[in-house]
Design a protein around this nucleic acid. Structure first.
Lengths: 243, 243
DNA sequence: AAATCATTATATGTCCGACAAATAACACAT
DNA sequence: ATGTGTTATTTGTCGGACATATAATGATTT
C-alpha cells in the first residue's frame, strides 16, 4: 500500500486514483469478498484528499466492484459486467453508427446462438415457445407487435442458459425497437413485399425447425428472419473501406 | 435465512442523484453536445451538497457521458458503450459462471458473424488473412500460439466492419485465454485427439472456405473450430434446469 | 455465568467553505 | 483592428465537521 502515491497531475486525480485502485486490486490478487483499507488510509497512501478518493470509489461502486457497509469497511465484490452499459444505452445519446453497430451485434449474436439453443432445448422450452406463438399478435403484413417479438426472442435467449447473453439482449433491445420505428419507411415496404411473396419467416416457422431438430433449417430461417436488418445495415454502411 | 438481512438501509444520495441526472437528460431530450447546468446550480436544484453531486457526475464522466472543461461548464457527449465493462473484465474478479458465460457469448458472436463476414469480405481482407496464416506459429498438436490465435480472429472481427463488436472482443479476449490456460487439462487432450484424427479445423481450412465463398462450409468449420469450447461449456454447465 | 441492554468507538455518508488552476470575457493600449 | 493584460467564473482538490449506522465493549439483570 506504499507504492500508490500520485505524481502526474495531467489527467484528473480522480482518473488516476481509479486506475491505481484497479491496479492495486489486481497486483495484490484481490477478489470478491476481500476487504480493502478504509478511506482515510487509502487517501493517505495515495496522497490525495478524501473527496478525490471517494469519487473514484464511487465509480467502482457503481460497477458493483466495491460494496461498503457503514463501520464495517469496504469489501470487493463481483462486479456486474453490463451495469455500466445499461445506463447509457439510450438512443438519444448514441450516434447512428453506434446504434447500427448494436443492431448488427444483436443479429450476429442471435444467429450464433443457434448451436447453443439446440444443445439446451428441452420439452418445457418448446411448450413455452408454442404458447408464445399461439398467443402472438400479428399486425398487417405478418408483422409482430413489439411485445410478441420480445417474448419470442427473449425465450430463445433463455434457452441458451447464458445469463450474460440474456442480460445483454435485454439491455440492447430498445435499440432494435427504436431503429425499426425510426426507419419504418425502409422496413415496412420490405416486410410487405416479403409477406406477399410468402417469403417471410415467421416465429411459427422457426419453432417448427426447432421441433424437428432441423439445425440448419433453423439457422437459415433466422438469417432470413433477420434479412431486412442485414439489408438495412448494408445500406446504411455502404463503404466499409477501413484499412 | 441469515443472508436475507437488508444491510444497505437506504439507497445512497449519490445513487439517487445519478438516477435523477440520467432521467433529467432523457426527459429533456438532451444529447451529445448539449450543455448542462453548472455544478452549483445542479446541486442547488437537486437539494444536495456539491460533493454528492460530484460523485454522481464522476460516475457519468467515467462512462464518457459528460465532458467538462474548466470554466466552460459541462457538455453531454456520446458515451462509450463498453468503457464500464472494460474496467472489470478481470478473471480474478469474476465468478466461474460469469467467465463461462463470457466464453459462450464470444463463441456465439463469432459464429454469428459469418453472414456479415461474407457480406463485407474483399481482396484486401483475404490477403491479410493469408499473411497471418502464413506467418502463424503452431505448437504441437496443431495448437496455435495465443498471438496467432489473436491475429486471426481479430482480423475476422475486423471484416465485419462493426467497431462495437471489435471493441467487445478485444475486451473479453483475456477471458478465453485465461480459461484455456486454467483448464488446459481439459483442452490439451481433446486437441491432441482431434489433431491425430485429422479432424481439427485449422485457420487455413477456414481461410479456404472464405476464398471459395463457401458460407455454409465456413460456418460449419467455425463450429468445429470451437468444438472444444462447446463441449467444455456443456460439461461445466450440465444441469441447465431453469424454469 | 449467560443473556440482555446500554454505551462507546469507528467507518462511511453528507455538507460546507476555501483555494488552485484554467480560461472566457472584457478592457485597454497600440 | 489587433494584440495584450486583467478579471470573473467554473471545475478540481483539499480539509474539517457532523450524521448515521454498527461492531466492540462494558454494565446490568436473571
Amino acid at each position: 500500500m506504499n507504492d500508490l502515491r500520485i505524481v502526474n497531475h495531467q489527467v484528473t486525480l480522480v482518473d488516476q486514483v481509479e486506475d491505481r485502485l484497479l491496479g492495486y486490486f489486481k497486483d495484490n490478487n484481490l477478489g470478491p469478498g476481500d476487504p480493502i483499507p478504509k478511506e482515510l488510509e487509502l487517501a493517505e497512501a495515495l496522497g490525495v484528499g478524501r473527496s478525490v478518493l471517494r469519487e473514484a470509489l464511487s465509480r467502482l461502486r457503481m460497477l458493483g466492484l466495491i460494496e461498503t457497509r457503514t463501520r464495517r469497511g469496504m469489501l470487493l465484490a463481483e462486479p456486474s459486467l453490463l451495469r455500466g452499459m445499461k445506463r447509457i444505452v439510450e438512443p438519444n445519446m448514441l450516434s447512428d453508427k453506434t446504434l447500427f453497430n448494436i443492431l448488427g451485434f444483436r443479429v450476429a449474436l442471435e444467429i450464433g446462438m443457434s448451436e447453443m439453443i439446440f444443445q439446451n432445448l428441452n420439452k418445457k422450452h418448446i411448450e413455452d415457445l408454442e404458447d408464445i406463438v399461439k398467443r402472438g399478435v400479428v399486425k398487417k403484413f405478418s408483422e409482430y407487435t413489439p411485445v410478441t417479438e420480445y417474448e419470442f426472442h427473449t425465450k430463445l435467449y433463455e434457452v441458451t442458459g447464458n445469463s450474460t447473453i440474456m442480460e445483454f439482449q435485454a439491455i440492447i433491445r430498445p435499440v432494435s425497437v427504436f431503429l425499426k420505428e425510426r426507419f419504418q419507411d425502409y422496413f415496412l415496404p420490405i416486410n410487405k413485399e416479403l409477406s406477399k411473396a410468402g417469403k417471410l419467416v415467421s416465429h411459427k416457422d422457426l419453432l417448427d425447425f426447432l421441433k424437428k431438430g432441423d439445425k440448419e433449417g433453423f439457422r437459415r430461417g433466422m438469417i432470413d428472419h433477420f434479412g431486412p436488418y442485414y439489408s438495412f445495415l448494408k445500406r446504411e454502411n455502404p463503404f466499409e473501406k477501413k484499412n
